[in-house]
Design a protein around this nucleic acid. Structure first.
Length: 475
RNA sequence: GCCGCUUUAGCUUAGCUGGUGGAGCGUGGGACUGUUAAUCCCAAGGUCACAGGUUCGAACCCUGUAAGCGGCGCCA
């Protein structure tokens, strides 16, 4: 279909639309943009006072008396109050508007007025068309009381009605912040000439411990959903040298915490010719870039969530401290925590360690016994591996895990045997090392965790549209 | 895998030591020309999650089941 045909069809099917040109799309693809091109944020900007406009949106709330209706209209950019008076609107239209329930969609025509009584601009309504009405026998179920009960968290009812909860201002705000975080990750890596690279979701072997794999039937065989892009990225490392992805990873953990999802978005990177410190530098720079991007693009949204912008500025502008595992253990022991050298740092210990942190901290050089085979042992002391975790403050826990990879064939075989892992499952991974292996490394960042941390969400579920955990796959 | 908690109207909830379940919001009807979660009047709406048990009598006590939520371990 050619572009002019498309716009004609649109013109024919949407006669109520005030058609305008979208300059950017017109220039890029020579296409007339046919959909909505006037937004509530435009009306609130103040540039359109006294102009006659038509605007599409949904009813956020409505109040009426016998002769006047106050209706708060919302779209994806904000809210504006519409005022309809019985003596200036057709009788039938007035009745239609009065009966429009919350989340009815409509097109309002009227004049933009500056009015202190509505705290900004409002629309003096001259015409209205209801597009999608709402049945009074089944009104929009997300009520004030449902929202108030959640008070920033989420109730069972809101989780069951997630498809409708998405329209509320809190969820919309979270999704806008989420979009900016994804954008920041792409702009960071692309700005440094990394290549975006995709790995399969169906895999044959585990990256992390095998117990957390989702098994799926695969034409009479068993396959698993990927836990990480890493092993496939290491295969492409000699080809691309700098690569990254943002993709879902799956973990069949029965965890029920504010930090866990079974399907989460994983930003991962891999670089050739680099070691633990190089990888860590990228992790820090990426997280600081995300913070700076949010300050630039989403300050209003963060403030509406009650976030302290100065705190996020602190994350953006200061280097992240680095401490070795040994030092962390000593600190914890000094605080009276029951921990021995060689124990992994579980969440309860992380929480104690990070309680006073004003910045994210890197924890490096874990004992070899606490980490899987692909971590490279430290040549200076092979009790340790060259790895790092980035711990976020405020109890949000680990947001990055990464490090240098075991890169020679001999070393990887030793580590696999030492762990008792069967070699067969990793044949391609080992083979990659037989042809010009080089030092390399990478990290994985839990995108949803970063968003939850920066947005101050009570639970990771609040920052993903349709959360998946061990007890919920619907809606 | 382990521990804890919850379930009363569409939503949010009150319901004391067991004695015929109340309210706010929402919905419907009515009043009101500047409301900000508008206000005022009226109405409809309940097998108290389900199944047993104890009791003269159970939303309430006991047992089981189900669904959900919170947390731990593990991890991003």
């Amino acid at each position: 279909m050619n572009p002019s045909m498309l716009s004609k069809i649109v013109l024919a099917t949407m006669p109520y639309m005030p058609l305008k040109y979208n300059r950017r799309l017109e220039v890029v693809v020579g296409l007339i943009l046919m959909a909505k091109d006037l937004w509530i944020s435009d009306l609130q900007s103040g540039d359109m006072v006294e102009q006659e406009i038509s605007i599409q949106g949904w009813v956020k709330r409505s109040r009426s008396s016998g002769k006047i209706i106050f209706l708060s209209l919302r779209d994806s950019t904000g809210n504006i109050q519409c005022v309809a008076k019985k003596d200036t609107l057709d009788e039938q239209k007035f009745a239609d508007l009065k009966s429009a329930l919350i989340e009815s969609s409509l097109v309002i025509t009227g004049t933009v007025k500056e009015d202190q009584r509505s705290g900004g601009n409002e629309i003096s309504v001259s015409d209205v068309e209801i597009i999608g009405s709402v049945n009074p026998e089944a009104p929009f179920p997300i009520t004030e009381s449902a929202m108030a009960a959640a008070d920033g968290g989420e109730t069972e009812f809101l989780l069951d009605n997630r498809h409708l909860y998405l329209r509320t201002s809190r969820m919309t705000t979270m999704l806008k912040i989420r979009s900016s975080v994804f954008g920041a990750i792409h702009s960071y890596f692309r700005g440094l000439d990394f290549v975006e690279y995709q790995a399969p979701c169906f895999v044959a072997g585990a990256v992390e411990g095998g117990s957390t794999l989702f098994e799926v039937p695969y034409f009479g065989r068993k396959a698993y959903l990927t836990q990480s892009w890493q092993l496939y990225a290491e295969a492409a490392m000699p080809a691309l040298e700098r690569l990254y992805t943002i993709a879902p990873s799956f973990r069949a953990e029965k965890s029920r915490t504010r930090r866990h999802l079974t399907e989460f978005w994983h930003a991962e990177m891999e670089i050739a010719w680099g070691g633990n410190d190089d990888v860590m530098a990228h992790g820090e720079a990426l997280v600081r870039h995300i913070c700076a991007t949010l300050l630039e693009e989403r300050s209003a949204e963060l403030e509406s969530l009650g976030r302290d912008l100065e705190m996020i500025r602190r994350f953006a502008e200061n280097p992240f401290p680095r401490i070795r595992y040994d030092e962390a253990v000593e600190r914890l022991q000094a605080l009276g925590v029951d921990i021995e050298w060689g124990d992994d740092l579980d969440y309860s210990k992380e929480k104690i360690l990070t309680a006073d942190f004003e910045l994210p901290h890197f924890l490096t050089h874990y004992p070899k016994v606490a980490k899987p085979f692909y971590h490279r042992p430290d040549p200076e002391d092979d009790k340790y591996v060259l790895c790092h975790d980035l711990l976020a403050p405020e109890g949000y826990g680990e947001i990055i895990g990464g490090g240098e990879r075991t890169w020679s064939e001999q070393e990887i075989l030793e580590r696999i045997d030492e762990e008792g892992t069967p070699r067969e499952a990793y044949e391609f991974y080992i083979d990659v090392r037989r042809y010009g292996g080089v030092p390399h490394g990478g990290f994985g960042l839990g995108v949803d965790r970063v968003i939850a941390w920066l947005a101050g969400a009570e639970h990771i579920r609040e920052v993903i549209p349709f959360p998946r955990d061990s007890r919920r796959v619907t809606p």
